[in-house]
C-alpha cells in the first residue's frame, strides 16, 4: 500500500492509502474525517472540493493522493481561529450567501485565498476566481456581496 505524508490544517499525518484512484478529497473526507470538503462533481468542474494546497487553491477531487505527498493543505475546518469564524465566514453569514451550503466550503477557501493574496482585488479578478465555482442556489449575488464584506473586514483586522 502506498504511503502518504501530509500536513492538514497544521497537523502532520502519515497514512497508508488504498491502491487505485484515491484523490486528495478522498483522503481528507474518508481518512481524516474532514467532511467539510464537499464533492459535487469529482471532475474538477464545480469547485465544491476546493482546498488550499501548498498555498494555492486546488480542486481536491482531481488531485491524486500520491501527488499530495509532502503537501500542506488548508481545509474549511482549519479556517476559523480559536473557535471564532474567519472574516470570510462571517461575511458569508451576514450577506446571505449561504443557502444549501454545499458549495460554501469551496467558495470560502477560494475567497480566503483571493483576499489573502490581494487585499483589494478588482471586479475582474473576483469574477475570474468565482467563475471556477458552481452554485445552483444563490444566483451569486450574495456571494459577490460576501466578497465585499470580507474585504472590508480583513482590511480592518489588518
Amino acid at each position: 500500500m502506498p504511503e502518504l505524508k501530509i500536513t492538514v490544517n497544521g497537523v502532520a499525518h502519515r497514512l497508508e492509502i488504498e491502491e487505485g484512484r484515491v484523490t486528495l478529497a478522498d483522503v481528507l473526507r474518508d481518512r481524516l474525517d474532514l467532511t467539510g470538503t464537499k464533492v459535487g462533481c469529482g471532475v474538477g468542474r464545480c469547485g465544491a472540493c476546493t482546498v488550499i494546497l501548498n498555498g494555492e487553491p486546488a480542486t481536491s477531487c482531481t488531485v491524486l493522493a500520491g501527488k499530495a505527498d509532502g503537501a500542506e493543505v488548508l481545509t474549511v475546518e482549519g479556517v476559523a481561529e480559536q473557535g471564532r469564524l474567519h472574516p470570510v465566514q462571517e461575511a458569508f453569514v451576514e450577506s446571505g450567501a449561504v443557502q444549501c451550503g454545499f458549495c460554501t466550503p469551496g467558495l470560502v477557501m477560494r475567497i480566503h485565498h483571493l483576499l489573502s493574496a490581494n487585499p483589494d482585488p478588482g471586479e475582474k479578478e473576483v469574477t475570474a476566481a468565482l467563475a471556477k465555482h458552481l452554485c445552483r442556489c444563490t444566483g451569486y449575488e450574495a456571494i459577490l456581496e460576501a466578497v465585499k464584506i470580507a474585504r472590508e473586514k480583513m482590511k480592518k483586522s489588518g
Binding site: 473526507r29 464537499k38 474549511v76 479556517v79 465566514q89 453569514v93 449561504v98 451550503g101 460554501t104
Partner: peptide, 16 residues
C-alpha cells in the same frame, strides 16, 4: 439563518 454557521465551517452534515 439558523444554519449558516454550521455551513460556513463545514460542520453541517450531509448524507455523504
Amino acid at each position: 439563518r439558523v444554519d449558516a454557521r454550521q455551513k460556513v465551517t463545514g460542520s453541517a452534515i450531509f448524507v455523504a
